[in-house]
Design a protein around this nucleic acid. Structure first.
Lengths: 360, 360
DNA sequence: TTGAAAGCGCTAACAC
DNA sequence: GTGTTAGCGCTTTCAA
């Protein structure tokens, strides 16, 4: 029995009788034989390998990966994961993938410069997830951040808020987009004069610092929209620790709708949700289509976000907040939520998704 | 200039003059040449590749990965990541790694049977992280769960609690160990009669269900130790949503001390912390040592956990809890914490780590 | 210090 | 339906 025949059998390719097929498989099993992926990948023209970079700390990327794996399997591709951390840069994660001769790259939440993306895209298909690109150097699948911020602002305005501050995500494209969306949405409500942007970031730690800035200049704001859920958590924790109650004294909105924020009623953050499964699936399909049939004419897929109402936002009621005995905030965090939506909860709200009943 | 010489230069091996070394590197850069990892790995006897499996959804695994990458780099190994999800089984993640001819395997939070581990270990070094093994089929690096549960029980007993319930982690070794640790710690305090174990799990969803069970039979318990942080969050959310205040009506302790629970004062979960960096570093060092010098005589490394006091635990005061006007729980979740430790906070507590001051 | 040549385990083209 | 052969891009002797 020749190696070529074994190869045919192991790949389930045509050209072997059912009889030998069975025999080869049986013997391979006995011997614990397993094809060497490196040899296979070295020999094959196409590696059928999809390189995927992600941030190991990001809850949202954790939400994306199941969809990535599922979509890759559905299209017959293997996934080669490369994570970036505080110490291991995204560039390093990408380099590692390049040496593995992936057929294409899917970069989750990439912060790499477009010039670099352009360079990569000359070598192989590149799809960025969760970020808009200025040019068309690579494909991108992301959420409509202008709409997302619009949903957040609409929600707050519907609750009676006018002094709405935005804690941004630092100096990068994604943050700039959300800042622009926030500014536009404020202007649309005639609140252009109340626009206030406080430097933030994309981590809980950055949220801590931003919370400190908010405390240092309390101002007249009644609501805050944070860059993302992590940042919102940091802000929330600093404020509540300092006696500012949420949503009693201040309403707070996050962004991402990561699994944790969706599933955990306790933080119950009101957040702009991105559809992780859809983003992941579309990104993989895009990459595979580009690999197999060349690049498609459209280079951008934009998905609509949705607002998830949590318990971190409530009606703007500066007067009530002065009467400790009755103020909403005088009740425990979660108990407030159990009481259901308060009065004044009828603004320009979007149909929001509901958390599943844990007892259902 | 021959391929052999290029190989020498690219690997920084000895046997080339500084002059050609520089020249080759320059030209390689110009051409964008990059050695093919598959060809390299195919040819080399040792792949210097460490296969690592992890659960993409686990916050704790996200905490382990930076340490894995750092330790691998320090020892000159590449990391090949393979994630498991709800749809992609751990076995499948392992299979993928096997085809890549890794020199060794590091399995984070593995739930694979020991028989399977034994099979793997005959082929290559295998180190399991975060789980005790019955036998010595593979090496393991994990936290002392008996001590961890002991810390949790001691902490609660020190606060005056006696009716302490444990929500377990489902039918697996890790859960059984913690149940045993809990039972032993209770017995050590003469509270053997108050042992109560409620079925739980290792996800927020499982915590939801366990919370429902606790509500269905409120009993006389004043404290709960959950299997892990995720489970604790689920329990906490269901209870607080139903009007049970934490820690006013019930104290709650988690397990893992994942980054999120450490950094976010808001959930402020009291938890048994595992040292993620140490676990990761030791696991990689172990695997590398085994790969390069054969298996070491000791097969188990056990690290001590530490208790992190959050705001989900407080003194047992059933009387105070009946007076809504003054009860601790009548103040917002985080505001309680800002007031500092309450009276009665002087039990058999361990020296606990402190959260860093976000304003520092 | 450099080059020639063999071969890692596989796939693909071809001959039988 | 099966075996033979060449070669993927590299590392590794071994000679020059």
């Amino acid at each position: 029995v020749s190696t070529a025949l074994v190869s045919i059998v192991m790949r389930n390719a045509v050209g072997a009788s059912d009889q030998t097929r069975e025999r080869v498989k049986r013997i391979a099993d006995e011997l614990g034989y397993r094809p060497d992926a490196h040899a296979t990948l070295l020999r094959r023209r196409r590696s059928r390998l999809l390189g995927v970079t992600f941030s190991v700390q990001s809850a949202f990327h954790g939400d994306l990966l199941p969809g990535i794996y599922a979509a890759a399997e559905a299209t017959g591709y293997e996934v080669s994961l490369s994570g970036w951390t505080g110490e291991r840069s995204e560039e390093r994660a990408i380099e590692a993938l390049l040496t593995f001769r992936c057929d294409g790259l899917v970069l989750l939440g990439s912060e790499v410069e477009e010039a670099r993306l352009a360079g990569l895209a000359t070598q192989m298909p590149v799809v960025v997830v969760g970020r808009r690109l200025e040019g068309t150097v690579a494909d991108t699948v992301h959420t409509d951040d202008a709409l997302g911020m619009r949903l957040a602002v609409d929600h707050l305005v519907g609750l009676g808020h006018r002094r709405i501050t935005h804690v941004d995500g630092g100096p990068n494209v994604k943050s700039r987009d959300r800042v622009a969306g926030y500014t536009a949405a404020m202007a649309a409500h005639g609140l252009g004069d109340h626009v206030e942007i406080v430097p933030g970031g994309q981590t809980v730690e950055a949220g801590f610092e931003a919370g400190g800035r908010l405390l240092a200049d309390p101002g007249v704001r009644t609501a805050v929209i944070a860059f993302d859920d992590d940042c919102a958590w940091g802000v929330m924790s600093v404020l509540e620790t300092s006696g500012v109650t949420i949503p009693g004294d201040l309403s707070l909105v996050g962004y991402d709708g990561s699994r944790l924020s969706r599933l955990t009623p306790l933080p119950g953050l009101t957040t702009v949700r991105q559809d992780a499964d859809a983003l992941a699936t579309l990104a993989v399909r895009r990459a595979v289509a580009w690999i197999e049939g060349g690049r498609l004419p459209s280079h951008e897929i934009v998905l609509p976000p949705s607002l998830i109402e949590g318990r971190s936002t409530g009606p703007s009621q500066p007067t009530a907040a002065r009467r400790p005995a009755e103020r909403t905030a005088a009740r425990p965090f979660a108990a407030r939520a159990a009481a259901g939506p308060s009065a004044g909860h009828a603004g320009a709200r979007q149909p929001a998704e509901r958390e599943p009943d844990p007892h259902a």
